[in-house]
């Protein structure tokens, strides 16, 4: 039950985080920026408007936005946010499940992008999957190496282990894994050194390219899905590296305390993201692998640190 609550919380909170980051970024760059409620307004607009659909589009265009949303929601069910609940809905070995659910969502998005037969869709999809090639193993290795000491490979298990042994959050392994995860979170949320979330310049875009031909409800659902994914990855980072302050039961007081701390942590992370976006320039597509290879080697070192030494 708790995990259902958490997932719904993610749906509701995700646009807010996006608004906050946009606003903060604008402020740092000396602009006023849109209101932090702007994403909610955008969603309302998308959901009310009619849609223009390509004549090449097939049933894929009609189904995928809903399917993609459902998949990201299911992925949210596997994560502990502000409370660790052993009874989470999809808990058993959920690290693998989480990554593959998001992978499925990515695959569906890819099919959506190819559906209108537009060159931009193909370009965005091709790049998206290309970046994913290095992201998926990296994020997996990073979480795995942080979680090797805990029993079982679920986020709940890793979080509980860290909460009961706070000292292990400061080992070399965890630090390396945290660095790698941070880089992956930046990549996966489509943030600046990799992808520019604000651009519509076709030569540079990755995620925007895939959903260029969408409008109306489909676009609204895809945008909401992207924001939810952003929040999910941030939560993954906290679950694996900084779960402190999370409730370990479902007593209302503890949960409330957990919610406040979690929101604080997420907003702080938003500040960091906005700062990074303000001070870095976008990379060329073919320099992205270097960035990701760095992340990959960090996570490999994190893994190695479990096996060398005493």
């Amino acid at each position: 039950m708790m995990s259902l609550l958490q997932a719904c919380f993610i749906v509701l909170f995700a646009p807010f985080l996006q608004g906050v980051i946009k606003r903060l970024k604008a402020r740092m760059q000396g602009r006023t920026g849109p209101s932090i409620w702007q994403p909610y307004r955008e969603l309302r607009k998308y959901f009310h408007k009619g849609a223009v659909v390509s004549d090449q589009a097939s049933i894929v265009t009609r189904l995928v936005p809903y399917g993609q949303f459902a998949l990201i929601f299911s992925a949210a069910l596997t994560l502990p946010l502000f409370t660790v609940d052993r009874q989470t809905l999809l808990a058993s070995g959920n690290l693998f499940l989480f990554i593959y659910l998001l992978g499925f969502a990515r695959l569906l998005t890819a099919l959506l992008g190819m559906d209108s037969g537009s060159a931009f869709g193909g370009m965005g999809v091709s790049r998206d999957l290309f970046v994913a090639l290095l992201v998926e193993p990296t994020v997996f290795l990073a979480i795995l190496s942080a979680g090797l000491l805990s029993k079982g490979f679920s986020f709940a298990g890793i979080t509980l282990h860290l909460l009961s042994h706070p000292g292990q959050g400061l080992t070399l392994t965890t630090l390396l894994a945290a660095a790698a995860l941070l880089m992956i979170v930046i990549t996966e949320t489509g943030r600046l050194p990799i992808d520019n979330p604000d651009t519509h310049l076709e030569l540079t875009m990755i995620h925007e390219g895939a959903i260029l031909d969408l409008s109306g409800r489909a676009l609204g659902l895809m945008s909401l899905g992207a924001w939810m994914k952003q929040l999910l990855w941030i939560s993954v980072f906290f679950d694996t590296c900084l779960p402190y302050g999370m409730a370990t039961d479902t007593a209302p007081n503890d949960v409330l305390y957990g919610v406040i701390i979690w929101v604080g942590k997420v907003l702080l992370f938003g500040v960091v993201l906005a700062f990074i976006e303000s001070v870095t320039a976008k990379m060329r597509l073919f320099t992205v692998p270097r960035f990701l290879t760095l992340a990959l080697s960090l996570s490999l070192f994190a893994l190695l640190s479990n096996y060398v030494g005493a």
Binding site: Q56, S58, V60, G103, R106, L107, A110, L111, G113, M114, D115, S116, G117, G122, V125, L129, F130, A132, L133
Partner: peptide
Amino acid sequence: ALMAARIFGVGFQG
């Protein structure tokens, strides 16, 4: 996943 998207996207869509 890339291979699958490629087969379906290029071969069956558009």
